[in-house]
Structures are given as C-alpha cells and as structure tokens.
C-alpha cells in the first residue's frame, strides 16, 4: 500500500530534512521548479517517474552556478544544502518510500555502484550505534507494541515508555522526554487524529511517527499532520529507517558532507 504521490514526496522530503515543515516546503519548492521546467510536457505517468523528475530537478537546482534570486524557490532549495549521499537516497527510497530495487535504479539512474552495495551501506548507518536516544511507544495492541520495542532496541534506542492511549502517551511524553514518539493512529478503534498530534507537539517538541493502515486519511495536506507516517503492515527496516532519520539529522548532515567531498554524489 502506498501513500498518494504528493504525500509520498513530502514524506520523502521530511525524511531528508528530518523536519516536517522544512521537508514540506522543500517538496513543494522542488515540485514547483520541476513543473515549471515541464510546463508543456506530459505529467509524470507514475510514481517512479514523479520521483525521478523530482530528484533530477533538485540536482539541477543545486548544480546551478548562478546565484539564485533572493526569495525564489531556487534560493530556498539551495539554502537547504546538497542532496543526501547516494547511499542515503537509496535507503530512503527503498526502506522509507517502499520502492523496489528496479524502481530505485530507475529513479536514481545511473547509480555509481550496485544497488545492493548502496542499500547495505545505508542500512549500516541506520544500525550503527547512536548514543543514548530514547523513544515512547503509544500502541494499544500488546503484540505490536512488543514488536516495535524489539525493533527499536535492536538499533540501540531505549524505550522509555509504553502507553496504551493517546492521553497516557501525552503524559508519558512529558514525564520521560523521549527523543521520538511512535504512535498507532487508530488507538482502540478510534482515530487518534490531529488532536493527538497537536497534543504531542505542544507537550513535548519531538518528532512523532504514526503507524497506520489508512495512510490516505492521515496525510491529507492539512495544517497539522504527523511528522512521519509508516504504513501497516510495516517492515522492521522501514521503522528503523524512519526512526534513524528523525533522530540522526545532524550526524547524517556530517556523513553526507564527507560523502559529497569524496565525490559520492
């Protein structure tokens, strides 16, 4: 099951920037640039083509020598710095966006190294030690909660709380100050909804990853949206990739800078 294309691109950009607002703005600015360039052409035929054009245009804007006009979309895009390294792009497209190997190769063509090498490099970054980061799980199904706990602990993240309702979750977030919150979007059959997202944001400024079987209902482009959405049934790699990107923004920036310097882009 996939998110709608525009939501999917915003989701991807949120993972790249590890920030909901900045990610959405980046997605819209690059999409606008891509549309402008293709004003009389056919719209992208499918999801892969949307992503391919998005990344091509993003690379073009970054590569432009001329200083962009202040306040333009290009100026905003350039102010975000270079694209992530190829390994990280492969990881994001595979594990966060759910593209197949062939689709990732089509989106990023040509890859400088085999897909498998780049993916395992990306996954190694995700699994590597990440200090003492903590997470709160808000999930009413004990089996899923226990599974999420295992997935997080496997990547070295300490689970500081397991809540069964949104209210409990908001309270525990305040008490335990987690670095990240993973929450089921439909607790007890009721939609946790934007109210819970707002409550988490107000109570504790940390990224919230929602896990849902109904992504269309979650990412509608409303004012308040979850920072991140993982679609059920989830793969452990997807959870780990999303959590790692939310937690490791600074470290990724450093790694990407090294990779760019080494000519990895």
């Amino acid at each position: 099951m996939f998110l709608p294309v525009s939501a999917s691109i915003r989701h991807f950009a949120r993972a790249v920037t590890a920030d909901r607002l900045v990610g959405d703005e980046l997605a819209m600015a690059v999409a606008a640039e891509a549309n402008q360039k293709n004003v009389n052409g056919a719209p992208p035929a499918n999801r892969v083509e949307w992503f391919r054009r998005f990344i091509i245009r993003w690379r073009e804007v970054i590569a432009e020598d001329a200083a962009p006009r202040p306040f333009s979309n290009s100026a905003f895009i350039k102010s975000m710095g270079p694209l992530p390294s190829e390994a990280r792009l492969v990881l994001l497209l595979s594990d966060v966006c759910g593209f197949s190997a062939r689709e990732v190769e089509e989106i990023l063509q040509p890859l400088s190294r085999p897909y498998e090498d780049l993916l395992s490099e990306g996954r190694a970054i995700v699994r590597s030690a990440r200090g003492d980061k903590s997470a709160l799980i808000v999930e009413d199904e004990p089996l899923i909660a226990a599974d999420l706990k295992d997935v997080l602990e496997e990547m070295g993240v300490t689970v500081v709380g397991m809540a069964r309702t949104a209210e409990q979750g908001a309270r525990q977030a305040l008490e335990n100050s987690p670095d990240i919150v993973l929450a089921d979007y439909n607790l007890d059959g009721q939609k946790t909804g934007v109210d819970a997202v707002a409550a988490f944001h107000d109570a504790h400024q940390c990224p919230v990853i929602f896990i849902t079987g109904y992504p269309d209902e979650v990412l509608k482009g409303d004012e308040v949206e979850p920072d991140f959405v993982i679609v059920k049934p989830y793969r452990p790699e997807a959870v780990q990739a999303a959590v790692a990107h939310c937690l490791d923004a600074a470290r990724y920036a450093a790694i990407d800078a090294d990779a760019t310097a080494a000519g990895d882009l």
């Binding site: 920030d19 607002l21 990224p207 923004a249 600074a250």
Partner: peptide, 16 residues
C-alpha cells in the same frame, strides 16, 4: 519542530 533540534544548524534557513 523547534529550531534547536539536531541538524537545524546545518541548514541555512530560519523559520519566522
């Protein structure tokens, strides 16, 4: 998210 989250300093953008 707040501006003082990790990584925010790597970007040259400010939220107003």
């Amino acid at each position: 998210m707040s501006q003082n989250k990790p990584g925010a300093s790597e970007k040259r953008v400010e939220k107003l």
